[in-house]
Structures are given as C-alpha cells and as structure tokens.
Design a protein around this nucleic acid. Sequence first.
DNA 1: AAGGGGTGTCGAAGCGCTTCGACTAGGGTA
DNA 2: TACCCTAGTCGAAGCGCTTCGACACCCCTT
Lengths: 341, 341
Amino acid sequence: MVTIADVARHAGVAASTVSYVLSGKRAISTDTRERVQRSVRALGYRPNASARALASQRSNVLALVIPLRTDMHVPVMMQFAAAIVTTARRYDHDVLLLTADEGPEGLERVAQSSLVDALVVMDIELHDQRVPVLRELPMPSVLIGYPDDADGLTCIDLDFVAAGARCVDHLADLGHRSLALLGTPTTVYERQTAFAQRTLTGFEEAAERRGVLGVETPCEHTFDAVLHTVQRLLDNHPDITGLVVQNEPIIGPLLDVLRRLGRRVPEDMSLVAICADDVAERQVPRLSSVTIPAERIGGQAVESLISKLEGADVAALTLLPAALTARESSCQAPHRDLTTA
Amino acid sequence: MVTIADVARHAGVAASTVSYVLSGKRAISTDTRERVQRSVRALGYRPNASARALASQRSNVLALVIPLRTDMHVPVMMQFAAAIVTTARRYDHDVLLLTADEGPEGLERVAQSSLVDALVVMDIELHDQRVPVLRELPMPSVLIGYPDDADGLTCIDLDFVAAGARCVDHLADLGHRSLALLGTPTTVYERQTAFAQRTLTGFEEAAERRGVLGVETPCEHTFDAVLHTVQRLLDNHPDITGLVVQNEPIIGPLLDVLRRLGRRVPEDMSLVAICADDVAERQVPRLSSVTIPAERIGGQAVESLISKLEGADVAALTLLPAALTARESSCQAPHRDLTTA
DNA sequence: AAGGGGTGTCGAAGCGCTTCGACTAGGGTA
DNA sequence: TACCCTAGTCGAAGCGCTTCGACACCCCTT
C-alpha cells in the first residue's frame, strides 16, 4: 500500500504538505498543489482510513440501526436505508449497518469505540430503551420516529398524527360517517411503536372532531388474517364505508378480500392508505394515499447529523407534513337510506 | 475517553500487558489477568477501533454491497443483509453498507483505504464489471450469485439451474405437458442477472429433457402487467396447465388474476414458485415452492470470508441444492380430452 | 552448583495520518 | 531602510493501539 510518505517523496515535499493539499486546511501554492496531486494520481494513493480516523478523531462513518422485525414493512425500511447511504456518501461518509437486536449495548459499543461519528436510529418506540443511552452518548444522533420523551434528542418523522387525521378528514369530507383503521400487526402496537400509535391518535381525534364513527383494528400479514379481520369488522359495523389502511403488505390481499365479499372499491367502500406512492399507484384501482416520504426523511436525517457534526444547531423535531393524494379508491359515500337512519 | 494506558495504570501493569490480556495472544498469569479485567470493567474501557485497526492492520469490518434496484425483490435482499450482519457480529465483525451504484470504484475505495477487511457482493450479473476489480483487490471477497467467469473468486448461491429444473420436473411428474416460466422484469434479464439467467437455463434444459413445452416470459410488478402477461400467455398457449413463478412481488396479483380468469389453482392451473418459504406459506392456496435460503447463503458467505481472512482455503463455488416443497398449489394435470390430442 | 527452558511481563518501536508551532521569503507599510 | 504580515512549507509530536524482542524469574535437569 502506498502511504502519504511515498507521495511526499515522489512530489519532493513534506508529508504534512501532502496532507494539507488533500484537506485544503492551509494555503498551498498552485505549483506545489498540482505537483502533489499528480503524485497522488501517479501512485494511486488512498489515505488509510484508520490512520486518518485515529489522527483526526473522525471516522467519517455513520451508524444506521435498522429493525430486524418481520412485522415491519421491509421495502420502506430499505428505502430509508438507501436514502441514508446515498446521502451519507454525498457528504463523504460511509454507513455501518447495525441491527436493532444488538440493543442499547450495540449503540454504546460502536460509539465508545469510535467506530462511528454519529448514529441514525430507526423504528423508535414511544418508550424506547435506547433513548436514554443515546442521550448520554458522546456523539450526535438522529432518530427516525419520535419517542414520548424526546428531550435533548433530534427526531425526524412524518407527522403521523396528521396523517391519521388527514385520512379521516378526506373520508368525512366525502360524506362517510363510519370509518375503520386497518392497522399494523398487534405486536407493533404492543411495542408501542411510535408511528403506529401516533396514527391511531390522529385517527381517533379526527373521528371525534368530525363526529364520525372510527373503529380500529390491527391486522396480521396473511391473507386469512385480512379476510377474517375484514369480515369481523363488517359484521360488527355493517355501515362502515371508509377504510384507512396503515399496513402496506396487506394492501393487495385487502383489495382481493373486498372483491370476494362483493364490496366494490370505491363505490361501496372507499379506501385510503398510508404507504409509499409507488405502492398506491400500482394497485387497481389506484389508491388515495398519504405518502411516506422515506427518501426525504432519510436524506434529512443524514443532513441533520452532518450539521451536528459540524457543530451547528439543528431543530429538535422535524415533522414532515402529511399530504394526501386523492386517487381512484375513494369517492362520495353511497347515498344513505334515510328511513333506516 | 479512557485509553489502554489508563487501564494499565489502574491495574499497575504495562499497556502491552493489557493488550495481551484482551487479545489472549500471550500467556498472562491468572492473577494479572483478573486484575486487568477488573480495571477494564471499572473504567468502562473500550479499545479505540481506529487505533486497533491501524496497529493490527485489521478493521474488523466487512463491506456489504447491495443493489439499489426497484426491479429486485426487496424483502429477500433484506433477509440476506440481516443474515450477513448477524453472522458477522458472531465473528466480532461489523458491516459497512455500500450500494451497488458506487460501482467498481466504490469497491476500490473501501478496500484500498483499508476501511474494510473483506467484501460481500450481491446481485451478480453474468458479466459483472466488478468481477475483474474484485480479483485484483488486496483482500478477500465473496460473491452471492455467480458470474460466468468466476475464476479465482469465491461464490455462493442457490443452484438456480437446478431450481428451474426441479420446478419443471415436479410439474412434469404430475403429468403437465405445457409449462410457462413467469420470470422477473425484463430489465433483470437485460442486465444478465445471474440467478434469473440460470433459472431460465434450468427451465429450458429440463423442459427439453422431459419433452414438454416450456415457454418463458418476463413480467413487471404491476397488477396490470401480470394480467396482460398471463392473458397473452394463455391466449397463445391455451393448453398451459403449469406455471413456474420466479418473481415474488407478483405472486399475490397472479393468484388474483388467475381467479379472475376463472382458472382454479391447482385444479385448472398448477403453480410452483421460487421464493422464500414464508411467502409460499402465506398464500391461499399455499404454494409449492423451491425456497431461497437467504439466511443460509448470507451466513455461509460471512463464514467463508472469515475463513479466508484467517488464511484458510475455501471452496471456490458453493451451490446450495434446490429443494422443492410440494404444497397445495400444484396437483395432477387435468385429464386431457384425447379427441383433441 | 551451573546451565537450560519455560512463563510472564515490560519497554519501545511502529501503524499512517493530522495538526501545531516554527521558520523562511517576499511584499507592503511607515 | 527597517519592520511587520501573510503565504507557503517543514519537522515533530502525537492519536491509541499491537507486537516484537528482551529480560527476569523460577523450576528442572545434569
């Protein structure tokens, strides 16, 4: 491997000069700079990452902690990860992949050994064990999702309370009086996963505010689960005409189930999903939806982290607004028979 | 941050002794060892990763290069990634996440800067640009998938040729005489992605060998694409009674489409999928399938890499056998009307 | 009693880089 | 002309660890 000393010798300068050429931290004459750059190219020099990290106290690596759960929707996670890696590279950083099952201890490990300079943590629960640890860590972090007590932390997320509310408002505006939220699997609620809880809150508050019925039910990912959940739901509340879905994997099965049950979408049943745009577009009929802007959130997370590393102050909480796109899966509520009302 | 010198002082020994206690590379008396270990705990010492890497020429980090493509099935990728990270941690290594869009240059970057000790590369094409680069890199690598020219490289993959063949054999054994392979999107074939091409080969060879009709068609991920592809397929080949699917995202839509077209599974149309077991189990009816053992492949990849790092020789090519599990989606071919034959 | 071989520990020399202080020239100011 | 600044470069001192050789010391052999 070629070292900075080799480059210095080749260019006829001191090693420190090479370093300054590379970092730009001191003025270097054009002549010297170009000579050094030529030597760098000629020798194919790449600074040794460990040496650099040791001397500069910066590894230029960010940790990304992702959940390893089967009850989460994987493609969305992947979109986050992709956005984070891509953005990190733009700022000359790399990404170390950690799985959430290492727990709080895993965060301490990578932070205290200076393996990374900063952390991005996903899949936050309302009372997340990792939160107190992150607070004490000697380096910046950003949460994707936000816990109950976010004091002293930087959080970025879609405004899921607003997302839940937007769905209700959209359906209520169309005249629907009985709505249901078809949510994530039970385990996600049991863990008090922040995004699921907050959507629930938004859904409930908006239903209350609009004076409409709002029932909620979790739903597992299998076809049978969808079938039974929907059947039970419609048995108990036959007048439901609007469905809010926050559970990407069941969207396909759900459309199928509704067909089987003889409910046309949107004529008999309006549907609004909280999901990625491409998923909504891909369905038949295309779904009205509140999008989950994974790219923006991931990119934003990295940018906040880089700012913090540079010593800047960043907003403690960034909630991206929940925008609803109306497509073909929702329409005016069916005319109600006034005699039964 | 507490350093090895602090620990040494606290324990009343030399820094090198602390190092030897931690690494176990030299004999240390029980007495000293325990004293040092107590000091390590008392001070909460964590070795600095960069210093360690610099001195030992080992970063204990593996690079994982994953595709960032929308035409690939994401959950499977994630399963690979999870298995790789989990296994790496078992061998005291971490994982640096790279996206394939950094290209060959990205591999050189992390390798030549000694950011990582070894690489795992996924989503291999038959004529992959990264292959020659990997061959020249001064560190071991493992490919998940295998290229045409795998000379001097270590590859691990499911035996997709056998997988394609197993599906044909299964259906042929059940008496089906006309089969179709519903494959990945066109772009995947255009890139000459190894697993897709090899499945195709296995499918063709087996169809030929068994003397059955075997037609192939790519298929995009939207519902409409599935509908049109299947319609066209059945229009052109009305006698097809067996379908092999290598395209996880379309499995749900496909079942739906077949129902719409009035083809019962398995009575009118037998189905075999190449997909993860849990996906096969989740469908109605449950699908006969050749499983993609992502966990095993990922785990195996890391283990091979660790062996190579330790200087051991490892097999150049590991092809995991393709096992077919028969479930409810495939059955005896419908009785043929001999007058039309 | 002298020599030989383990065993356990230490000190010092790096690993390859960054960064600080110091030094030299050259140009501007008084 | 003397002085001071700035720009440009260098050397040396680390960063925190691993590892090599050296050195005691003890026990066993002859």
